[in-house]
Amino acid sequence: MAKRINPLMLQRIVKAQLWSLTGFTIGILFFIIFFISIKGLPQITLEFLTSNPVDMGRSGGIFSTIVCTLYLIFVSLMIAMPLGVGAAIYLTEYTRESRLTHIIRFGTECLAGIPSIIMGLFGFAFFVMALGLGWSILSGGMTMSIMLLPTIIRTTEESIKAVPYELREVSFSLGVTRWQTVTKVVLPSALPGIVTGIVLGIARCIEETAVIIFTVGSSLRLPESFFDSGRTMAVHFYILAREGISMPNAYGTAAILILSILFINLSAYYLARQFLKKIC
């Protein structure tokens, strides 16, 4: 039998291994960001950001795709946020654990497991065709909101559950109603978690392609209303790269994509931290 390794030595080896695994993961992230930045950042000029694509994106900028992405985020969140946060409040504060809540939870989890291409097909068949909304930001926003619901419900639920039960008892013991307790005590304390869910939702809207092609379309025109078709940055990037239209412009778009996700993440966490500092 092999000689037993000294526990202290083993501890060092394990620590080194775990550290290198973590380092490797972070390394991949930095490599991707670095790679995209090297290729993409030189493309980014003020003109690139503020002018519309010309000649299918071979030249010109990406302004209309930025606008389309923002519209899509807005519509998706306007639908998914009230529904998701409302459902989470219902599940945590207004019902006791029962067969019904298990079914609801199971349902939302299944919803999260549906591949996005299937969701795209559903959005196309239902919103675009059956409801006759056509390829539009509205169709896409509604389809996206269905995809965001599980994440928003889950993160909101978790953060509401993390609020100490004693705070509710105190509030009730002061003769404050359940709804007032939810809005004045529970939700403010749960806000960072809710924000996390919403940030994940925004990132999802930015990065999604399959659903968008099916429901929003890929028109390069600047969308003027929610009923217009459009092309989000991710779809633009996909088409530019896939059809070999312009690799430099594709990388430029990719760089903007990554930077905006980074920016949204950082600012959301900053805001949540500031808020927490204020109330605690």
């Binding site: 100490p164 004693e166 705070l167 008892e169 105190v170 509030s171 013991s173 002061l174 005590v185 403010p188 304390s189 109330i279 605690c280």
Partner: peptide, 13 residues
């Protein structure tokens, strides 16, 4: 009928 609990629980305010 007000109540004071065994553990002091200030609201986070």
């Amino acid at each position: 009928v007000g109540m004071v609990f065994d553990k002091p629980v200030p609201l986070p305010r």
